[in-house]
Amino acid sequence: MRTIRVIGIGTGDPEQLTLQAVRALSEVDAVFVLDKGSEKADLVALRREICARHAKAGLRFVVAGDPERERRPADYAGTVEAWHAARASLLEALIADELGAGEVGAFLVWGDPALYDSTLRILERITARGRLAFACEVVPGISSVQVLAARHRIPLNRIGAPVHITTGRRLAAGLDPEADSTVVMLDADPRFDHLDPELTIYWGAYLGTRDEILRSGRLGTVGPEIRRVRAEARARHGWIMDTYLLRKPGAE
């Protein structure tokens, strides 16, 4: 039977791979990559670098264009559903064509496969169709949330207090009143005007890479600077991946 390994590779630093991830990759016959276009060529290049360091000789690097999806849809859930269905069809065909019986394939997932990544859901769809059988193994990785806290030299939570992880889309409705600390991911256009300016923000972009940018401070003070720096960086690179932590005023 074929085996598919979903391997977390951290946020951009090749040294963030765990020993388990290195060992898992060393046994892989083919790596599958969805190419998001020339603007994000750096993401494919990093995966090639990781494979050059840790994969066995003769590894096959299988690249296919990622299906397009609307970025600001009126029906977000419906758009994501259609996108996942398209991805599942594409990957099912790639695995069937490019991975032989008894071979091991891998998807190298940015951060950790369990946190805001669709790879496991896509593989579940393929399995549910019943046309292609494979074993699935998951290797955890270092997430952007962990790297953000490490770079700012802070614990993610305060003593006995909760942490809420959400998306920029959800943040538009406001913070969860029960959350002392809120991590925000996938925020395509951060806007802070509706939030308490006394919140503390810890922001990071391109975490773990040579282009890493960090800002922190009172939201009302550094919020406008973060928006400006973020826009400049996105224009310069053609893409950006960032995350941030919002913390209520209070004792640390």
Rank of each mutant, 00 (worst) to 15 (best):
G141P: 05
V109N: 02
T182R: 01
L94S: 03
V229S: 05
L156G: 05
A114I: 00
V222I: 09
L132N: 02
R129G: 06
A96H: 11
L245T: 08
G10K: 04
I226V: 10
G12S: 07
G220M: 08
A88E: 03
A30L: 03
G58Y: 12
M185E: 01
Y202K: 03
F107C: 09
A235V: 01
P113H: 05
A128P: 00
L108P: 05
L148H: 03
D97E: 15
R47K: 10
R170P: 00
M185D: 01
R23L: 09
Q20L: 13
A93H: 13
A149L: 01
E39T: 13
G37K: 06
A188K: 12
A45G: 07
A57C: 01
E103R: 13
A57L: 11
E92N: 06
E27T: 14
S143M: 07
I7M: 04
P14I: 08
L156K: 04
R169G: 03
A133D: 14
V139D: 02
A172I: 10
E137I: 01
R48H: 03
D75A: 13
D97K: 14
H164G: 00
G105P: 09
W83C: 06
K40D: 08
P140H: 07
T182G: 02
L46T: 02
T11F: 05
A88S: 14
V145R: 02
A64E: 15
A149I: 03
A24Y: 12
F32T: 07
E49K: 09
F32W: 07
L171Q: 03
P140E: 07
L207A: 02
R153K: 13
A101G: 08
A57R: 14
D193A: 15
R247I: 07
A161I: 00
V104Q: 11
Y244R: 08
L148Q: 04
I201Q: 10
T243S: 15
I213K: 12
E92Y: 06
I159K: 04
G130E: 04
L123S: 09
D211V: 00
A101D: 15
R191D: 15
R71P: 00
G100P: 04
A45R: 14
S144L: 04
A251P: 03
R153H: 11
V139Y: 04
E124H: 13
R87M: 15
L245R: 08
F192S: 05
A114R: 11
F134Q: 04
R191F: 01
S181E: 01
G105F: 08
D180R: 07
G220E: 08
T221N: 01
V109C: 12
E92D: 08
D75M: 12
A188P: 00
D196M: 10
E39S: 15
S38V: 14
E212A: 03
D176M: 03
L219C: 06
R234C: 12
S38F: 06
R125C: 07
L43H: 09
D75L: 12
E103I: 06
R53P: 00
G141S: 10
D117M: 10
G58P: 13
I142Q: 08
C136N: 00
T243Q: 09
T119I: 10
I4Y: 05
L94E: 11
P249L: 06
Y116W: 11
I50K: 00
T221I: 13
L207E: 02
D29R: 06
H194T: 14
L148T: 04
I126E: 08
G208M: 02
A150S: 14
T11S: 14
R60K: 15
D13N: 15
D13A: 11
A133P: 00
D13M: 05
L132E: 02
L99I: 08
L108H: 05
